[in-house]
Design a protein around this nucleic acid. Structure first.
Lengths: 213, 213
DNA sequence: AAGTCAATTACCAAATGTGGTAATACGCAA
DNA sequence: TTGCGTATTACCACATTTGGTAATTGACTT
């Protein structure tokens, strides 16, 4: 028994078998466990001690994403590779947030799966091209929504607003900036105008949610 | 002139030349532009009309990340591949947020660069394994911080807090929930205790930032 | 030189929020 | 059944915020 130890969780018996077949011919990989469901996953992991887990998503009982959470709760160092037909945002980001290390679509060529296993094993995050793009765009969108509107706050106003968001009262802001209470008020009035709000809470919520500052 | 049209921006002349050399032997790629800086990037892009841009980060004048922003502002469909020695978070996420489609470290083998170009060209997001892992972990951390603390708010308190975060005053909340002003105050006092805050602004900021609710 | 804009200060009156204390009522668990 | 937690209401005194109006200064532009 040599190479990277792999445990497979997939309810498609034929698929598990064909991966096992492919592995038999290599020295780089070993199948240490093959399971059709995740209902006893913690014990399965303890018994098989894999380096890399190949995880389907749609399975009877505990689904693959829940299974990832369960594994991550106890095992920091196991690499988990999603291997599924799903490419929708919900599944992809659900799996990633649960702690998956890679995401390969079943439509990819078998060789890609093995490349991905090796890559995961050395600390990479293998993904099918389309999935990788989805992940990047998710990050980009977080910014995009931020940078859309400009409220034309002066730098002093931003300074005041920043302190407000950090929980300071007008009086405290005045102290911090060594200006009078009324000056703070004057700034706040301008800020309210520019943000189209009428209270501190609205200003704070809008500032955080719209990523002003 | 056939294949994927590539423009290179890198202040290392030798490196640009060696990539050009490698490309000469292939039919899949063509160098349509080679530039040592980004100071005239928009015109360079218009002149060379690339499918894929290979972009260094550290260059005299406009740096690679700024250049990505400039390109993205006008050209939606050009694939931009970062090709750099930097693997720190600031550069990586800066480039991604600016709109890069892939991120390859110069320490990778030359063949990887060409695979990445092809992958980017078909809509993928090629990344060096370590970079990909960084990106996934960034997404995972966003969740981790969210689900850590439970402030034990009752459902009624969550209801009140939710309205507060949406900018309503105590009086408005009372109206909305058809309870008295003093009841709202009682709830708020409890909420302040549980969140360890002493003002509306702190409560709102903490609720949004810590993803309470 | 006149005009615009940001930053600063001031005062008035009204609305709103904060902290403390106290009481009633309901459901649920020991 | 006693007790705990949640939801509800009430009042007092004080602090803070809000909207309106007005004025001064300095920097930058036309």
């Amino acid at each position: 028994m040599n190479g990277i130890k792999i445990a497979i969780f997939d309810d498609n018996d034929a698929l598990r078998d064909s991966i096992s077949m492919l592995v038999k011919d290599t020295k780089d990989y070993t199948i240490c466990g093959s399971y059709s469901n995740c209902n006893n996953i913690i014990n399965n992991i303890i018994a098989s001690k894999p380096d890399v887990v190949i995880m389907d998503i749609d399975m009877p009982g505990i689904d693959g994403i829940e299974a990832v959470k369960l594994i991550r709760r106890q095992f920091e160092n196991i690499q988990i590779l999603m291997f599924t037909v799903f490419d929708n945002d919900e599944k992809v980001f659900g799996a990633i947030k649960a702690g998956a290390n890679g995401y390969i679509l079943k439509s990819a060529a078998p060789q890609n799966l093995f490349n991905a296993i090796s890559e995961a094993n050395i600390g990479g995050a293998p993904m099918t091209p389309g999935i990788a793009r989805k992940v990047l765009q998710h990050l980009q969108n977080q910014e995009a929504e931020a940078a859309k509107e400009d409220y034309h706050l002066s730098s002093r106003e931003k300074e005041v607003l920043s302190l407000l968001v950090n929980g300071l009262s007008y009086k405290m802001i005045a102290g911090k900036l060594k200006i009078s209470y009324d000056t703070v008020r004057a700034h706040m009035k301008k800020i309210y105008e520019k943000l189209h709000v009428t209270s501190m809470t609205e200003a704070v919520a809008k500032t955080i949610n719209k990523r002003i500052l």
